[in-house]
Amino acid sequence: MEAIWIYQFRLIVIGDSTVGKSCLLRRFTEGKFTDISDPTVGVDFFARLVEIEPGKRIKLQLWDTAGQERFRSITRSYYRNSVGGLLVFDLTNRRSFEHLKDWLEEAKMHVQPFQIVFLLVGHKCDLIQLRQVSREEAEKVALAFGMKYIETSAKDTVNVEESFTVLTRDIYERVKRGEISIQEDWEGVKSGFVPNVVHSSEEAVKPGRRCPC
């Protein structure tokens, strides 16, 4: 039986090719890191629970996307059902920083009529010598975009946990304040309590089929 969670949030991770999206996710969900990781072909899925307050868990569904431009016609269909996103760039790759605006526009265009809460992530902060984007500059951009900013390293496990927790907490607060609400036909936020009860009673009646639809 899966651990009990109060909400499920669906998050999407976007950004240029090789900025380290998959590595960040693998570090967060599996605790592993490899220096070299295969490019993502299409869309990969990860999941993890985070404890937002003592005893209050949130289940994160995390969608990892291919960075190459031609895959956008596929990845863009994942925006609509996401409540949050990590917008990732590589601190050692100026270009990936310059493309942030394009990514954000792309997301905004395809998320309608919903909204996505983004966190700006400057990745690979362990590579101090190779840095091409300063913290101040990135913070300025984050402010202009209206999002928080964090610097991470999957290699040295810097702020990996924090980045996801900050975003999750941010969304959680908005849900509590009613700025984001659970809606039928939208997968961004789901409530954990009610459906779980329904599931378990259905399981007892129809083993092997848990489909409530």
Binding site: R10, D44, F45, A47, Q61, E187, H199, G208, R209, R210, C211, P212, C213
Partner: peptide, 16 residues
């Protein structure tokens, strides 16, 4: 597949 929870993420995850 039929044992899997009937939602997009679960089935995608299983099959992928």
């Amino acid at each position: 597949v039929l044992e899997c929870e009937c939602d997009m993420a679960s089935v995608h995850h299983l099959l992928s």
